[in-house]
Design a protein around this nucleic acid. Structure first.
Length: 385
DNA sequence: AATACGGGGTC
DNA sequence: GACCCAGTATT
């Protein structure tokens, strides 16, 4: 505390020239003294002049902020844009989300991944309708209590939509602040994230917390980038960033190495009855919960074994052809798939109630089939005539 | 504290 | 191929 930097009072650039680089870089006191006073006005100014135009920034609407923040969890801005527009058009408010049929909800999310995000969001929407009159509560704690909203998302909604002075610490913020302070703590640790929230809460401005949080994130997304060289030449806090000063941006942030993913062999069956292809619903829990899939089994089956599996499904195989192998990588599992195209007698297709026979058009419209099956979904036929 | 949970982009 | 990403819930 004895080394606290005086708070910013006039033009940030002049101010920085006057007090900063030498003094700040030399006394290696604690993080908050590096951050306090000066970083905040500099990055806020930069943010206001450089922020990207994004669909959810058009207007201040807590529901839009919520939807965008959930979509943006572990997902890039560019990927989210079209999903966001479609989602708020179809489901413009919490009440619409709360009453949306599951199938439609999954179609709206199809391809975004982490499908529990949207299930949790719908459960939270029900709570919002039932307990808060259809409007997201203006309280960090109440937001936190909603399904799918953790400390990051609660902080983002509270600060951006409601102007509440709470931090929103995501991967960008952890990276940016770790570099500015040249912290070598492992940012994967929950304890480090907690500490970061505490530090930021102390130094963030109370008059524009939303801009402050977004400035840190925007800086991380656009300038202080995660892979490749950070664009320090464009950075508003270049002169006081310790990692830049000491040329350690490549070492920071520090992250613990992650576990290798396990490999799983699977055999995918493209079962066709004339023009239609068999799909089925996945279990409600676990990987890709509640989505639709081409029937598939564990292991790499021979054609003979595949035929047996199809017979067990109470179908009558007429023809089988091996398809090209395919691979799909999840964050924690790698599927190595082999496929078979199997034609079955159409007389038998209604014996198995678990299977749905659909053409491509119908499944595009009604059934969410995750990208993992993409290599074999392409064998589905366009249209039943 | 560790693990489950998608998918796409970049180097 | 390895790594990354506007995280949260469960175990």
């Amino acid at each position: 505390m004895e080394n606290r930097i005086p708070v910013y009072q006039d033009d940030p650039d002049t101010y920085m020239e006057n007090i900063c680089s030498d003094k700040v870089s030399q006394n290696g006191s604690e993080n908050s003294s590096v951050l306090s006073g000066i970083v905040s006005p500099l990055i806020i100014k930069w943010y206001r002049e450089n922020k990207r135009i994004l669909p959810w920034r058009d207007q201040n609407n807590a529901y839009y902020t919520w939807v965008s923040e959930i979509m943006l969890q572990q997902t890039r801005v560019e990927a989210v844009k079209p999903y966001f527009i479609r989602f708020i058009t179809e489901l413009p408010d919490p009440a619409a989300l709360a009453s949306c049929p599951e199938k439609k909800l999954m179609k709206l999310w199809e391809g975004l991944g982490y499908y529990n995000r949207v299930r949790n969001m719908q459960a939270a929407a029900c709570t919002v309708v039932e307990e808060y009159g259809g409007k997201l509560p203006e309280s960090y704690e109440k937001l936190m209590s909603l399904k799918g909203i953790g400390s990051y998302t609660a902080g983002a909604i509270a600060s951006i939509a409601y102007g509440i002075a709470v931090p929103a610490v995501d991967g960008n913020v952890l990276r940016v602040v770790s570099r500015i302070t040249e912290s070598r703590e492992d940012i994967m640790k929950q304890s480090v994230r907690k500490k970061m929230e505490q530090t930021l809460k102390e130094i963030m401005p109370s008059d524009c917390p939303g801009d402050f949080n977004q400035a840190l994130m925007e800086l991380g997304a656009v300038v202080c980038v995660p892979n490749g060289q950070p664009k320090c030449g464009e950075c508003p806090v270049q002169k006081l960033c310790r990692a830049h000063l000491h040329d350690t941006t490549e070492e920071i942030p520090v992250k613990a190495p992650k576990k290798a993913r396990r490999i799983e062999n699977r055999t995918v069956l493209v079962i066709q009855d004339g023009e239609r292809t068999a799909i089925q619903k996945r279990p409600d829990k676990g990987l890709l919960a509640g989505l639709y899939e081409l029937p598939n089994v564990k292991g790499t089956l021979s054609a003979e074994e595949a035929v047996k599996v199809v017979e067990k499904m109470k179908l009558e195989p007429l023809y089988i052809e091996e398809l090209e192998p395919a691979k799909h990588i999840f964050s924690h599992i790698e599927w190595r798939m082999t496929g078979y195209l199997i034609r079955v007698s159409s007389l038998e297709t209604n014996r198995n109630s678990k299977l749905i026979f659909a053409d491509k058009k119908q499944s595009d419209r009604q059934y969410a089939i995750p990208a993992a099956f993409g290599a074999y979904v392409k064998y589905m036929k366009e249209e039943t005539r």
